[in-house]
Write a protein that binds this DNA or RNA. Structure first.
Lengths: 211, 211
DNA sequence: TGCCGACATAGGAGTTACTCCTATACGGAT
DNA sequence: ATCCGTATAGGAGTAACTCCTATGTCGGCA
């Protein structure tokens, strides 16, 4: 078995650098490259491509979700390991549907990270509490009669819950405010909310965010 | 010792009727009267007055806070026992400052209710987990440098967290929308929030509401 | 007794947030 | 070939909100 090339994308230098240093200590890991956001990561991919990409799901410039989409569209065989703060259940579910290969929290220890990388290389998937949990709620959500939120909608819901204004969110996502409002209206319809207050409560109930 | 006269104000007929029936079984309890809201309660008080008033803090027509204020202003010697759903810490603190004599949740058992009534008659105060808890947070809140929320502000914050619109809230409180916005702005300033999302998060952190 | 500060109230004028309806484009399922 | 779901966005109107100013009340305090 040849060595595993790993790229990491995370906007927090501390996390990123620490991860790079850690990865290099792993026996089976070969080349390691880093990027501060999705755009940088995609730039790296023009020349060569890694076996595994470790991706922070909450990056400012190009969000994790967009990055997953872009990467998998161009290189369907690249494995993706998601770094997530809180285990946002619905979001995890969507990312799994997109073909992501595993999840880690930023508080994971070195052993777990190494285990995840090897599991993904050998079995194509790293199974842990986060992914287990997501299986459970998939069904539950269906039962409520309401349609599922799309990835874009979850992305928007997360930003709303961060106390960002409509302007800020639309600028961040490079869409018009109109489009933002359309999404927001759709989310409210799907979640049975009347306002941002209702949206935040929904996100809390569903574990999309934690208090 | 003569028997204790108790009035109860609660907008939920089930709770109210149940409470009336229960109270009548207590040995030391004499006359029992009921009201569906603060206005009705005050009307009862024109003729005679009870030893203890049991008050639901979340009533639609005339809120519990207003009722407490009105009752104590006219009859400082009447004891007040608050019925509360969630133990909203900051609110409890304020009500204690106003001179309320004890708290019960609606899930309290008959024995606890009887105990509370006797404790208030005999010692002027019913001490339990809810009141204990409020003592603790009083200090914590002071430390943050920000001024305390007033009762009115907490009342408004609660309604905001219920996903009510500005119009609905101002109508409910019989104030102009302008006044509502002034309060809201002040609350945001005091709590360091930028929007309703921030207010809800604050309320959750402080235990003013529960998820 | 008289004053001051905190609180609750509210108007005017302006800005931002948002709804409702309509419409286009694209990619995947049937 | 068609259709549905998704993402995009404009026009026109309404609701929500800010900022500044101002008033009455009440309780404490000099």
């Amino acid at each position: 078995m040849t060595s595993i090339n790993v790229y990491i994308a995370d906007d927090h230098p501390v996390v990123r650098k620490g991860m790079v240093r850690l990865l290099k200590t792993f026996e089976r890991v070969g080349q390691v490259k880093e990027a501060a956001d999705g755009k940088e990561l995609l730039a790296l991919l023009t020349n060569d491509r890694p076996h595994i990409i470790i991706l922070d799901i909450e990056m400012p410039v190009m969000g994790g979700v967009d990055t997953v989409k872009a990467v998998l569209q161009r290189f369907p065989n690249v494995k993706i390991l998601i770094l997530t703060m809180h285990s946002e259940e619905v979001l995890v579910r969507r990312l799994l549907d997109m073909g992501v290969n595993g999840f880690l929290t930023k508080s994971s220890g070195p052993e777990e990270i190494e285990k995840a990388i090897y599991a993904i290389m050998d079995n194509d998937f790293y199974k842990n509490a986060i992914t287990e949990n997501a299986q459970g709620i998939a069904g539950a959500e269906e039962n409520e009669g309401r349609r599922k939120l799309t990835i874009r909608e979850i992305e928007i819901l997360l930003l709303i819950c961060k106390e960002m204004t409509s302007r800020e969110i639309s600028e961040r996502l490079h869409i018009s405010e109109k489009t933002f409002f359309n999404h927001r209206t759709n989310i409210m319809e799907k979640t049975g909310s009347k306002s941002n207050i209702g949206l935040l409560k929904y996100a809390l109930r569903k574990g999309i965010i934690s208090t």
